[in-house]
């Protein structure tokens, strides 16, 4: 089937099998290997990207589901040659060692800061609780997100946009 997906602002049209998972579409069809393919079972979060501005584990979404929608990946965080404050925070606070979980962690962190510009340590920990890091013990990841919060992450905030129906309650 033919799908058209906007990834980091660029529209891509491809013929794919309906069973193709979004993570493999990004990595194998588009060559965007920033998003990592990890556990394959929705547990580790290395594959987190945004689908219509909401983080999703892309090993648990079909590429077909993304057709007509917007995807954002770690490659899109940098703007005009300038690293996003979240990326700068991971550098400043040594928020990664092997780096495998990092793209997913950063996409979740960016989303958290868009919705809560000054999260507490506990709120950061909760936001990344569906993602696994086997190196850092999470301490430096939490520091990196807090660093971004204190260093202009709010100014990089994307306007919130919801595709879901308005919740009336």
């Amino acid at each position: 089937m033919q799908i058209t997906v906007t990834v980091n602002g660029t529209e891509y049209t491809r013929d794919v099998e309906p069973r193709l998972l979004l993570i493999h579409f990004l990595r194998d069809e588009l060559g965007l290997t920033g998003s990592h393919w990890g556990c394959d079972t929705s547990n580790c979060g290395a594959c987190v990207v945004w689908l219509d501005r909401t983080p999703v584990k892309s090993c648990t979404a079909l590429a077909a589901m993304a057709s007509g929608r917007e995807v954002a990946t770690v490659e899109g965080l940098e703007k005009d040659g300038q690293l996003d404050p979240v990326q700068q925070g991971f550098v400043a606070c040594h928020g990664l060692q092997c780096g495998f979980c990092t793209p997913g962690m950063m996409m979740t962190a960016r989303w958290l800061l868009d919705h809560n510009p000054d999260p507490s340590e506990q709120e950061v920990r909760e936001a990344i609780s569906g993602q696994i890091c086997r190196c850092t013990g999470y301490e430096n990841i939490v520091r990196a997100v807090r660093w971004a919060s204190e260093h202009g992450a709010a100014e990089h905030r994307e306007p919130a946009q919801h595709v879901e129906a308005e919740v009336t309650a």
């Binding site: 929705s42 909401t54 999703v56 584990k57 909760e126 609780s129 569906g130």
Partner: peptide, 8 residues
């Protein structure tokens, strides 16, 4: 589940 899974 976890916050990311609860999103979808």
């Amino acid at each position: 589940a976890d916050p990311i899974v609860r999103n979808w």
